[in-house]
Amino acid sequence: MYKQLSSGVKISITRSISTSFEAYLASIGWDEDKFSMEDYMVIWQNYFKENAAWIEKIPTDILLSSEFHEEIAKKMDEVITKILNEEPTEKQKTEIAKLQKKLGTNYKFDCKSEAAYVEQLLKDKLK
């Protein structure tokens, strides 16, 4: 069912998953101990209901299908795994190192998205 959707709708679904996941992680300060898949699901559902036009482009019978929900769950796993495994860029590492030296901090980060969060956090502290 998911495969039958237009590429634009699939891209929008992927974007809603990644955007809401990164926003959720930022809201918990990227603290693994605070992570709850149930809480993330609530955030994602609110995100796509309020911000995503793709939901209106999918026929109701597909939206209500358990097969579609299973396929979306698999897509979520893929997107989340990709986010968590994408290496920080050298530019991010360099910038964070400079900021941490200025601020005397020692934040750790494991992936590109977390590095973006840490970099913004450090820039905000400099203000």
Rank of each mutant, 00 (worst) to 15 (best):
S6L: 09
S7W: 13
S7I: 15
G8I: 13
G8C: 07
G8H: 13
K10E: 07
I11V: 09
I11E: 11
I13L: 08
I13G: 07
I13S: 04
R15K: 10
R15W: 05
S16I: 04
S16P: 04
S16V: 02
I17E: 00
I17G: 05
T19H: 00
S20I: 07
A23I: 09
A23S: 08
S27P: 01
S27T: 06
G29M: 03
G29D: 02
G29F: 00
W30C: 11
W30D: 05
D31I: 03
D31W: 04
D31S: 04
E32Y: 06
D33Y: 13
D33I: 10
K34G: 02
F35N: 04
S36V: 00
S36E: 04
S36D: 05
M37W: 13
M37C: 13
E38W: 13
D39Y: 09
Y40A: 06
Y40I: 08
M41L: 12
I43V: 13
N46P: 10
N46G: 14
F48A: 07
K49G: 13
E50Y: 13
N51D: 14
A52C: 11
A52N: 10
A53R: 08
I55C: 12
K57F: 06
K57Y: 09
P59H: 07
P59Q: 10
P59D: 12
P59K: 09
T60S: 10
D61M: 05
I62S: 04
I62L: 06
L63K: 06
L64M: 08
S65F: 03
S65R: 02
S66E: 15
E67H: 13
F68H: 03
H69S: 15
H69M: 15
H69N: 15
H69D: 14
E70T: 12
E70C: 15
E71Q: 02
E71M: 02
E71D: 04
I72Q: 02
I72Y: 04
A73E: 10
K75F: 11
K75A: 09
D77Q: 14
D77V: 14
E78D: 12
E78H: 08
E78K: 10
E78S: 12
V79W: 06
V79D: 05
T81N: 09
T81S: 12
T81H: 11
K82C: 14
N85V: 08
E86W: 05
E86K: 09
P88V: 04
T89F: 00
K93V: 07
K93P: 05
T94R: 09
T94K: 12
E95A: 11
E95N: 10
I96Q: 00
I96P: 07
A97E: 00
K98W: 08
L99H: 04
Q100K: 12
Q100A: 12
K102W: 11
K102I: 12
L103E: 03
L103F: 06
G104S: 02
T105G: 06
T105F: 03
Y107V: 03
Y107D: 02
F109C: 02
F109Q: 00
D110I: 15
D110V: 15
K112L: 15
K112R: 15
S113Q: 09
S113N: 09
E114I: 00
A115D: 02
Y117D: 06
Y117H: 03
Y117K: 01
Y117M: 05
Y117I: 02
V118F: 01
V118G: 03
V118Y: 03
E119V: 01
E119K: 09
Q120S: 14
Q120A: 15
L122A: 03
L122P: 00
K123R: 11
K123A: 06
K123E: 08
